[in-house]
Computed example of a mutant assay.
Amino acid sequence: MEVMAYRTELNPTNKQIGLIHQYCGTVRFAYNWYLDAAKAYYAECGLFLTGYAFSKALNNSKRPEWFTEAPSKSVKHAIMCAERAYRRFFKRQSGFPRYKRRNTNRDSFYVICSIHVERHRIRLPKLGWVKLKEKGYVPTRQEPKSATISIVNGRYYVSVLYEAQDPAPIQPTGEPLGMDVGLKNLAVLSDGTVFMNINKTNRLRKLEKRKRRIERMITRRYLANKGKDKVHGWHNYRKAIMEKWRIERRLNNRRVEYMKWVCAQVVRRQPSSLTIEHLNVKGMMKNRHLAPALHKQGLSVFLELVEQVCHKHGIELRRVSAWYPSSRLCHVCHRKNTSLVLGQYEWRCPVCGTLHDRDLNAALNLRDASEYQDL
């Protein structure tokens, strides 16, 4: 069975908006409450506190009225998420889980049962019927498994989960392709197709410039409102924060949509295999000179989308080692150019005299690579 998620924007009433914020706060409180209890329990008894034990003790204790108004499954799901994160810390697989904070641009809660979808609205536990901004997108013939209501940059979304039969993908019959990803261009295919870096377009540059202006405005308004009453003051500061979130949402949406379009163009070629390079993006982000450009390019998101699209359409995805010299090898005579530097985008082979474009040459070498890992 395959799990399909459909995410769309909600159009809630003012009363429903208040309830969404209330339930997000309750879930956040339950998450942090478990972490505090687990720390105290370990300090006192030296044992691991499970989420089930904490949830059982919570149900048998006296709780505030506002706490019991939230969906019980949402609270339990938050506790189990906290337990999963704490267990990883307990096994020394990660650091101690971070506490969830208020006043962030992202918040969510999870619900199951009693979820019904119609063409223009969805019924959610404790919220009732909520209007959808996009009509007819979420399937109505099948009962959904669960839903996640989220707040992102002041907007409200629902992600509905369905179980669906995994259809057998059509076997592609095209030529193998190699794809080199980078900062100068998002991707270059071995057939010569170049997908440019969308961050270099005028539209995104103007948005980035506007974002920097808003950030300076936020700093000035923070200093101007420092020491004032947070109930009656700070209004303009909060307006600037919301404007910054709105610009960030527009930037993120345009980048992700462009990545999806690039993946669709690759699928249209129906390659029998697609070879990419295994990139340690997390390690590359430690370079403070490259980190801002890498963050804007979103290579991790793009590679994840490529993997999903290849799996869906039956394209064999191959990944070569990060140490494979795809840019340094001449794809004609296979001579390795050890003097190639990072900022050099063209080079001539000293043996056969072929003039190479760095990215296209890397894509051709990736296509012809013999040592790779099947995904």
Rank of each mutant, 00 (worst) to 15 (best):
T8E: 13
C24S: 09
R28A: 08
Y31K: 06
N32E: 11
L35T: 05
Y42V: 05
C45Q: 07
C45P: 00
S55E: 08
K56C: 09
N59A: 15
E65L: 14
T68H: 06
E69K: 12
A70N: 01
R84G: 07
Y86F: 13
F89I: 14
F90Q: 10
R101E: 08
Y110S: 05
Y110W: 11
R141M: 10
R141V: 10
Q142D: 02
I149A: 02
Q165F: 06
G174F: 05
E175F: 05
V181H: 00
V194Q: 03
N199T: 12
N202Y: 10
K226W: 04
K226G: 05
D229E: 11
D229N: 12
N236C: 05
Y237N: 05
K244A: 14
W245T: 15
E248D: 06
E248N: 08
N253G: 05
V256L: 13
W261P: 03
S300N: 01
C310A: 10
H311L: 01
K312H: 10
H313N: 12
A322L: 08
S326L: 03
S327F: 01
R328Q: 15
K336Y: 01
N337I: 14
T338H: 06
V341K: 13
C352N: 03
L355I: 14
H356N: 09
D359T: 01
S370R: 06
E371N: 02
Q373H: 11
